[in-house]
Design a protein around this nucleic acid. Structure first.
Lengths: 137, 137
DNA sequence: CGTTCGTATTCGTTAAAGCGAATATATGCG
DNA sequence: CGCATATATTCGCTTTAACGAATACGAACG
């Protein structure tokens, strides 16, 4: 059996996943890059709270960011470790069966198609689908 | 796509896994039922601490217990949810690459073969291999 | 530069986690 | 039953997480 010299530390990943709000955020990012204002609108939670949870995900290294003027986009950063990546993938797959997660995604889809129906999304850059390359979900 | 009515809550599982000591405990239980005194001896940590972490694993529902007189044995209880089970399985597989986890297992193997070399294991019931049925690791 | 907008961080608070030390509880034995 | 052994839980403390409210910071614009 192969025994690499360095093992990937799964604890920070698990700590990041051990919160429902953060799972909801990841669910929304499964195949899109999403702007913070969309997270706030879709999850219907305060901006500071969303930002804080995104910060935890950043700390765990499983999301990355792209600034576009005033807007900050987030997308999943798949761990380079295969096992960690598999765990994250399985997690997102599991979330498909969750009612609230489904509702969140439906709401996100609606917001993408008709942002005019959401006051806070006027003028905001809509979520951008991730390119097939490197996408796990 | 199938949409079951009830989703499995992964958060408690992740919370349980988000601690290194608990990962070390699960690593020792991957294919055996292990007595608390063996955990204490192998991990070389205080008994109250080991008990407390085992209590967290019990609370998460991923270990079950069997009392044998003064001795209490613990073994992994694989989640009935396939995704949760896969995550736990992947986790244990990942731990195989960890040096400390390897050392722990080696020490456990030694303790099983020569308990007389460990003061606290005299008279204690050795770990019992799990039967092939239902074993994931 | 002042103002506005979007977002990150701080503040004050509460709850939970984690620790070592101490103690309570359960089991066995003479 | 008293004592010994194994284990679970409590205690007191510190640290971390999570929250709502408030504030700081970054980008854009005239």
């Amino acid at each position: 059996m192969e025994r690499p010299a360095k093992a990937f530390d799964l604890v920070p990943l698990f700590a990041a996943l051990a919160d429902r709000t953060r799972l909801r955020l990841l669910n929304l990012m499964r195949d899109r890059e999403v702007c913070v204002c969309y997270f706030v609108e879709i999850l219907r939670q305060g901006q500071p709270k969303i930002s804080r949870h995104l910060a935890y995900l950043r700390r765990a290294g499983i999301v990355s960011t792209r600034r576009e003027g005033r807007w900050m986009h987030y997308r999943i950063e798949w761990p380079t470790d295969a096992k960690a990546s598999a765990i994250l993938d399985t997690t997102l797959t599991s979330l498909r069966a969750d009612r609230q997660m489904q509702a969140d995604l439906a709401r996100l889809t609606e917001a993408c198609c008709q942002p005019q129906r959401f006051v806070t999304l006027q003028g905001a850059p809509p979520p951008r689908p991730l390119e097939a390359t490197g996408s796990n979900a």
